[in-house]
Design a protein around this nucleic acid. Sequence first.
DNA 1: TATGAATGAGATTTCATTCAT
DNA 2: CATGAATGAAATCTCATTCAT
Lengths: 195, 195, 195, 195
Amino acid sequence: MGGHTLNKKERIIEAAIEVFRQQGIEKTKISDIVKVAGIAQGTFYLYFPSKLSLMPAIAEVMVAKTLEIVKDRVSENEPFPKRLDQLVDAIFEVNEEYHEIQALIYAGLASTEHLKNWETVYAPFYEWISDGLKQAIEDNVIRNSVNPERTARLVIGLVESAAEQIYLYDTDKEDEAIVQKKEVKEFLRHALSIK
Amino acid sequence: MGGHTLNKKERIIEAAIEVFRQQGIEKTKISDIVKVAGIAQGTFYLYFPSKLSLMPAIAEVMVAKTLEIVKDRVSENEPFPKRLDQLVDAIFEVNEEYHEIQALIYAGLASTEHLKNWETVYAPFYEWISDGLKQAIEDNVIRNSVNPERTARLVIGLVESAAEQIYLYDTDKEDEAIVQKKEVKEFLRHALSIK
Amino acid sequence: MGGHTLNKKERIIEAAIEVFRQQGIEKTKISDIVKVAGIAQGTFYLYFPSKLSLMPAIAEVMVAKTLEIVKDRVSENEPFPKRLDQLVDAIFEVNEEYHEIQALIYAGLASTEHLKNWETVYAPFYEWISDGLKQAIEDNVIRNSVNPERTARLVIGLVESAAEQIYLYDTDKEDEAIVQKKEVKEFLRHALSIK
Amino acid sequence: MGGHTLNKKERIIEAAIEVFRQQGIEKTKISDIVKVAGIAQGTFYLYFPSKLSLMPAIAEVMVAKTLEIVKDRVSENEPFPKRLDQLVDAIFEVNEEYHEIQALIYAGLASTEHLKNWETVYAPFYEWISDGLKQAIEDNVIRNSVNPERTARLVIGLVESAAEQIYLYDTDKEDEAIVQKKEVKEFLRHALSIK
DNA sequence: TATGAATGAGATTTCATTCAT
DNA sequence: CATGAATGAAATCTCATTCAT
């Protein structure tokens, strides 16, 4: 399952994520990426016209990874409040692991015209949360004035920003994280009027 | 009150904000900034050692502008729920005007070691919100389980991310903004358990 | 009679002429030529060792085309002065159609050591004119001090340069051409002392 | 009067002429030019955006040099036929010295959109010849049906193409040149109907 | 013969930074 | 303090050429 089973384009993306995480976008040269990807300099340009054009592809991979972890951590059969807590834990977990990438994607998309893809890239994540909220409304476990699509975005925005506030700083802040998660969970529980 | 009344350092910062907004950090050259600032290339280095060292100064200016608008829009004497609504409106207003800058600061701080300044830069904004929450708890208009400092950060994170979701896209979305604001306000009211 | 009836080598030459005419030699990549020729990148190298090695082949094709048109336009049985006028018209006609190519061949041959082929490539054209002059001398219709071989080169050089002066500019200059042709014809008539 | 008395732009042009003559346009790198000019690589780009953008400037310099030599070789006070012979000798002389450059300018201009400048660049040369023809008509030493402007172009085109036919080949051809010049002079004398 | 993805040497180009004025 | 032409290290990017299929 190593890098060599991936095709060239995927190899480039994985290599870019790795190098960007270590040294940031600004300091990363195309030559660094191709070295890690194990390909020739020119080959990069067969797949991407520039360094920044990588960002949408990276964003997609990152959201996919996030969604995968979230789906894995949130148990199907638990009651909604429990699942909500698991969601918060999962987002914090992803953020701890990939905090540099969050900033990078944001910066990378912001630096380009690719910003408009953001919505598309996040779509599957939004949708999954939205479905969960719909079910919760149906089951009458949260207030029915909640608009699922819109609130999905608020929930993700809230939790991610809370996690970033902790993990943006590279110092280890496990204690901080625990308290922050607790506060977010309570905030969320009230926001959704969990019964 | 034009640019000419500003000293050189301020002229550079204002010019940088202007150029960064138009073309992004990555694509902006020092030469672009000095051209707009109306100073010589070499003069830049008398005030800043590099392009990225501008970011904390820009962040400071932006947060100051934000806080100024927020303080202006939120009436001292209105009841808390009304003031909360005004806060949401104010943050959306700032975001509409300066949405590119939010991303830029984030990107700019993220690209450097200056990230650690983030907390310091945002401090006055956090504090002002935090004070408002403390008062509300004292006045018994929101749940008293709220931790003011922590929740101040959640509130700002929530509202800013909600606003970004609307205004990141350059298309005019006034209708969208109205609905989004309504949903955020309700979300917030429940989150704080406004009585 | 389309490109598909040509063999690969001819397809490459025709494609190169087409692309060179549109974008010049310098800007033309092998990849542009093979795209138009409808062959693979590697196939090019089965027929030509480099881009510039195409030039003699192109020159040959162009001179053949020129000679074909000239022979077609100049009537066998007309008196010499009439045939001289027809020659001028024919060279102007070719130049109007292929003015970029003239410069290209010149440039292409000049860029290489293939320059020495120039004489060989033009030989049939020179010879044909030369034969015409010999006949005219024999028939006593031009001055007999004319050296046919040498003067053939002068005549072609004169008329081609006159045509280039008109057609090098892409604007349509039919009126200009008419006047220029008239002047060249008179110039030539005197130069050869047509009786 | 060495290279150091020239300004940077002139230094670049002189260096480019020197290097182009030695190795041709295609093989010449910007780095070769700046090395000879004694400036930094980046400095080149302060004056010219690309290698080919040098061509019009070079063309101008070359025509100026040509005109200078021609004016020097053609005596003011000699009779017209003598001056015509001197003109032929002068153009052959320039061509012998700078034959590579003639081709280069042609190629260089042809490779770009700068072709349209050709007429402008040659204008002073055309004008000088044209004035000589006008005087000759006035003095009744050539046929008065000559159109001076138009014929100036024909004369230059004729003589230059004749010279190129000799000197394009790098082999020494002094004997050839003598015979060719003789033929051109006679051709010209008849063409203008020198009395 | 024919292919075309991959190569990588080497060219162009950029632009933060310096420094003589 | 201020200037801005010049620098040149270091990046991006190109494209002729190869070679496994």
